[in-house]
Simulated scan of single mutants.
Amino acid sequence: MRKIVTRALAALALLAGCDTAADFNIPTHKDLKPGGVYVAYVNGCKEGCDQVAKGDLIQTVDGKKVETRRDFLAAGVTDGKPHKLELLANKTHDPKQVTIVAETQDLPPLKDIPPFWTVGAKNLDKAPSWARRRMFGHASPMVMLVNIDGGILDGRQLYGKKRFIVYWDWGTRTEQAEAITFMKVLQKARADLEARGVDIMFVHLRFPTNQRQAAMNDSDLRKFIQKWSEKKPDGTPYPPLPTYRFPNATEFNPARQLGLENAYTVFENLGSSPTIVLMDEGGIIRWHSEQTQVPPQGSEVTDPVQYTIIEAIKFALEDL
């Protein structure tokens, strides 16, 4: 029994620890520096896609240079005809040429998806190093989220819009305080974010590292939000953020836990609360930070909690 407990604690410590680029294939500045279009995930095609790997950088399509996802999609590779790709291999940057034959395919409820989920390498490289945890550079992972006001969303339904997602727990007083601060700042920034087409999702769950506190139900979440919401100058509270939670054991349905990648879930990639995930409209995670970041010397914002959420908001407004 002691060995089992020790192994479990070691696993939890590893999950909550620092993610390394080598262990989780996290794209670094060095990996992205050559530019081009970063392959986040291979959906497959009739011919050639098995020679393309996550992390490869597409440089040209049929001799034409590509630098953004829009460039790649505009190349029209899903017409069923051969198309020649020039790429740089993941990590090594060794040049390679691949000819693919692709047709549009469906990933219900999505239709006409491309052979690869992609993002411009320069755009992906805008995130700071501390916002490159293990989901960074992935396509929307498998997840099932319950809206406390009704309805269910999955990872595929997140595709098509920019998302500012905060995953938070209340296992400790520190985690509660951090979640409250994040919520208050986001309530103030909500109008600006929505004006830029960014939807906020405030998601409560019991993190894998929380062994003491059960997750809140819908009623508890509403009370929590009502109690701690930021107040306007006239004393009235800001509207509550769109709030979600992970499903309980009765609600959970594996068939509803969907994403843009197979066998890759949000839950297995969460380490510590609070976690911020910023996703672009193409379903690519452009920011994944956990806990809070100590501000650099000379920063106007000196509180780590405030600094972390403010930096994420700036990124969502300017670079997402």
Rank of each mutant, 00 (worst) to 15 (best):
V166N: 01
Y167A: 03
W168V: 10
D169N: 13
R173K: 06
A177L: 11
V185M: 10
Q187C: 00
Q187S: 00
A191N: 09
D192K: 12
D199S: 08
I200D: 02
I200P: 01
M201K: 09
M201T: 08
V203L: 02
H204Y: 13
H204M: 12
T209M: 14
Q211R: 14
R212F: 15
A214V: 10
S219R: 09
F224L: 03
F224D: 11
I225E: 04
K227G: 02
E230P: 08
P233I: 09
G235W: 11
Y238W: 06
L241I: 02
T243G: 05
T243K: 01
N248F: 14
T250I: 11
T250C: 09
N253V: 10
P254C: 12
R256E: 06
G259I: 12
E261V: 14
N262Q: 15
A263D: 13
V266D: 05
V266M: 07
F267G: 02
E268H: 11
L270H: 08
G271R: 01
S272L: 14
S273C: 08
P274T: 15
T275G: 04
T275Q: 13
I276F: 01
M279C: 14
D280H: 10
G282L: 09
G282I: 07
I285Q: 00
R286V: 15
H288I: 05
E290P: 15
Q291S: 01
T292A: 07
V294K: 13
Q297N: 13
T302C: 09
D303S: 10
Q306P: 03
Q306R: 14
T308I: 10
I309H: 12
I309G: 04
I309T: 08
